[in-house]
Design a binder for these strands. Structure first.
Lengths: 241, 241
DNA sequence: CGTTTGGGTGAACATATGTGCACCGAAAAT
DNA sequence: ATTTTCGGTGCACATATGTTCACCCAAACG
């Protein structure tokens, strides 16, 4: 048997018949139960190895009931992507708030990342897992969202005075590097023992250092002229020999 | 049905009864057929959603025959990790050969990465996929191997003259950053249309820029004293304000 | 009130899976 | 030449899956 996890089904709707609730509200609840059931089942499996029956069961409804909410697992998956990135966008908004010197901006950003990873562990785990693995539709959706993040970051960066003369390509390069670093930091946190604050502090320290190293490179960057093209081969060997 | 791919089974052993071959050799061939069948089935699925029967079928043997080679899918997966990293280590060896200035070292490293991704596409895809997703045993095995890479890179870096006074922690920080950047570059290449050389050149350009940016930061890094500890909060805001 | 709507049910289907068992036949060992 | 070894086979079983269909019944609506 491939799926041998615990089989306890949890009621979809908390038995609170005290006040009658609207029908659409009840539907929303069950839908939510399905989404959360799926998220929790993904602790040590990939979405691709998740069965419709399993999700329905653990959400407390019968398999056929599933189709009242989604017309298949893939649609459920896309809904999860949506839900996850909604909370992620919320995080970005917080991160955009702070306006400080580089060092503190780095610290603040990493701190926000860490906090949100803890607050939305399941969502982060889901996107970290499905980002590169499994169902193509999900992978694509997630990559699009991440590229969107990176682009928004690039726009933010463009507003910074000391980056005014950078080509948009170079800006996207930095934002991509920063986003990837954040992603791998988030993955590291998710993989760390959830109750080992020392390991996590270590991850945070490293992440901050990485970002600082990148920031240190920025002032030495020779912005390429916006005319991107085949100007390969003559970038000055600027670094250490 | 969840698995609806093409069901054509491919004979495990090319029918070449001309010369009698040793039994163990024949076993090796079937084992190899199983591994490769699995690798190819992973084009758009994760290892966790791969069934023993499917692999056996597509390797050209009967399900129960599978157990003559592995005692379950997990062992197959670990064998794949081994196989994949054997070729990866070979790549590292090539990369270690070049000794040049920073810019050319970057270009050479990226070029080697790209070449090996193409030459061992299936292996790279496998580890990129299973790196963060799916079966815990595989994830752990892969992470260990990657950490090992990172550590070896750190040792190499330590030998460079201009990094002589860096703490080992900082060296690991850089090597980690470099490895992560390479990993995400490899993932980008795998995701790009396999027959779109323009997109790939773009990825390569970006990767080179990322690495150069990092290299530019290196000379400005203030090496932390080996006494790591709670010296938080007084790193000079060195970058752009 | 009566009627319609729609979330949830249960049985049923064809098909898939992991794994145990007895068996075969040729290579390997004696 | 006889026996042993061992990949590979075929069958069987219990169990899982996706999806259909006809229902049920309380909320929503007229």
């Amino acid at each position: 048997m491939r799926h041998n996890g615990s089989m306890n089904a949890r009621a979809a709707i908390t038995p609170r018949p005290s006040i009658a609730i609207t029908r659409s509200e009840r539907k929303r609840q069950t839908r939510e139960a399905l989404l959360e059931a799926a998220l929790e089942l993904l602790e040590d499996r990939s979405f691709g190895s998740l069965s419709l029956r399993e999700v329905a069961r653990s959400a407390g409804i019968v398999p056929t009931g599933f189709y009242r909410h989604f017309d298949g697992m893939e649609e459920l998956g896309l809904a999860l992507v949506d839900e996850s990135f909604r909370t992620l966008r919320q995080m970005i908004r917080s991160a955009r708030a702070g306006r400080q010197d580089t060092t503190n901006a780095i610290r603040a950003s990493v701190a926000i990342l860490v906090r949100h990873v803890h607050e939305h562990r399941l969502h982060f785990r889901f996107i970290a897992r499905e980002r590169s693995s499994g169902v193509p539709a999900l992978r694509r959706a997630i990559h699009n969202e991440i590229r969107l993040f990176s682009s928004e970051l690039a726009i933010d960066l463009a507003r910074m005075p000391f980056l005014g003369d950078w080509s948009s390509e170079d800006l996207h390069m930095v934002s991509g590097l920063l986003v990837d670093t954040m992603v791998s930091t988030a993955e590291a946190i998710l993989d760390a023992a959830p109750d080992d604050p020392a390991a996590e502090r270590e991850i945070v320290r490293m992440a901050e250092k990485r970002l600082l190293l990148i920031a240190l490179g920025v002032p030495r960057w020779r912005p390429s002229t916006a005319a991107s093209g085949g100007e390969r081969g003559e970038r000055r060997a600027d670094g250490p020999s």
